[in-house]
Design a protein around this nucleic acid. Sequence first.
RNA 1: GCCGGCGUAGCUCAGUGGUAGAGCAACGGUUUCGUAAACCGUAGGUCGGUGGUUCAAUCCCACUCGCCGGCUCCA
Length: 645
Amino acid sequence: MIEVTYPDKSRRSYESGVTAFEAIAGYTLPNNRTLLAAEADGIAVDLSTVLTSNVSLKPLTFDSKLGKEVYWHTSAHILAQAVQTVFPLAKLAIGPPIDAGFYYDFGFDRAFTPEDLNRIEEEVHSIVKADYPLERIESSQEGAIPLFQERDESYKVEIIKAIADPSVSMYRQGNFIDLCRGPHMTSTGQIGAFKVLSVAGAYWRGDKQNPMLQRIYGISFPTQEELDQHLLLLEEAKRRDHRKIGKELDLFSVSEETGSGLILWHPKGAMVRHLIETFWREQHIERGYELVYSPHIARLDLWKQSGHLDFYHESMFSPISAEDNPYQLKPMNCPFHIVIYKSRLRSYRDLPLRWAELGTVYRRELSGVLEGLKRVRGFTQDDAHIFCRPEQLAEEVADILKFTFSTLRRFGFEDFEIFLSTRPDHAVGSAEDWQHATDALKSALHALKVSYTIDPGEGAFYGPKIDIQIRDVLERSWQCSTIQLDFNLPQRFELAFTGPDGKPHQPIMIHRAIFGSLERFIGVLIEHFDGAFPAWLAPVQVKVLTLGETQSSYASNIIVELKQHGFRAEADLRSEKINLKIREAETAKVPYMIIVGDKEVAASTVSVRKRKEGQAGTMKLVPFIKMLTAEILEYSSASPAPTQS
RNA sequence: GCCGGCGUAGCUCAGUGGUAGAGCAACGGUUUCGUAAACCGUAGGUCGGUGGUUCAAUCCCACUCGCCGGCUCCA
């Protein structure tokens, strides 16, 4: 007999050899979902899995992350079956689930066309309708290889040969068979709604030396409504693409004449950036940072000593010559801050030193990866370096975390996901240093009651790090903030402080950024707000619109008064209809409109109109100013650290 | 960089092997009109660039620049 424990802590006994399906069949599923697979001691398994020992068992439905993975993995198999039905010569490569949906890579002698994708999707529907059961087949490597050789599946053969385990598994549905670790759903008919999304080239194993495969992306959901909802989000993301809005609102541009990946900030965009930068500087000074500035180029020798020339040269522009000395355009700010540190002897009493700089760096990104503000060749890091003693580490990190959360909240981000990356295989620094540093990061996270995920071995070679992802209104995740410890640079530059013992000690260096790249962050912000910035960030906060020429001087006086109160206000005195002026102000996403006609002039009032919401009443200018001031102040209510699921 | 797609007036787009159009914007004029587009007119493009095929190319071909979707989520 074996004992099965369920998520509600109840237990039941079964004969050994019972299947996961039998053990879970009686368990009620939430939300009317279909049972897809099971989670046995935290690992997803087929429902046909035979249980032979005590286990804690959980039903998997589409509502969990693991369940989605199973659902989308099976969907990928259905896609592959459809492709091979339509194009028997297409060779199977790999087909995993991804964050949202799945893809499958095929070796094929040409690119798939949109018409091909339509045919494939039709075939998918008939496979779903046929409701083929999925059957798991276990085999030795020796048994599996001829099977795939026979089918001319050279990628599969290559995969099998690379597998360490002598036995492999395959899944069959109808006449389609694929090498696969699984687990899978029980039948193809369990897919509710399926959409083939797009196709793009992708290298076999991501290596540009290898042949280019055709990657088909798809997505599936239990119901048509969920699929429609998802497609709506994709459309919305496309609609509010920051490149499109950036052009419409005249925020920024990129020109072929100046070069790709180099941002030209137009006045309106520059104002938004200026507001963010000003806020950033004020916050840093308030929180005990000092501002520094460093040049855009430095002698090549500096980059030799920092190691960037060895490890980072692929991302650096070529050196610049000046007389006999080669200079290098900076891809990072850290070496400059280090040189400042070294400009004099430092005492343990001086630490921690917190130096911040909005430093513009240049990186030679591949032309194909550039994307609006989000991936560029010249960008401004909101960089800071903290030099501290080992025992100060946990507190410094906790402060940075608090600072980061409060800053991100200020910009309307409430949903955070935190990752702690630990020591990779190849790393500098002693095991003890890594242990101490990683513990300090953890204790900072614990102190703030922040939950996080550990990414084992994903730290940089020079130290462990904490990455923070924000989730925007379209439910997309963006990684902006990062806190990285560095054992490498202090060593390379022989940084030291004099301890109470009168001897030199090595400080710990923390690199941290909240926005990461100002350009990228603003790109994310534009999409998050759909270009409709909150009043404190809007390049123009108030637009005064006149009905006719007789109100011009009244309107101008209002502008003067608003400006005296520090607001960004503009007037529209043209002899145009009020509807047109309103429409243009709405399109420009100006948060407040003030409409003045003869009535307002006579009563010395203003008619206030709020962006998107419409008329907000007629009032004297003073209450309007109070209202706007209050709205702007509301944004500074930054709260403490989040609690995470 | 690689694969695929695209590149026509400031913007959004239509179009054809015989040297190009629309709407909006701009400019000029008329209109002074109360909460999301008044009306009339004018001007504006060597059809991304270079070379080639052709009697003739914006349209075909090659190269080049740029943009878009992807390219370390490893059965």
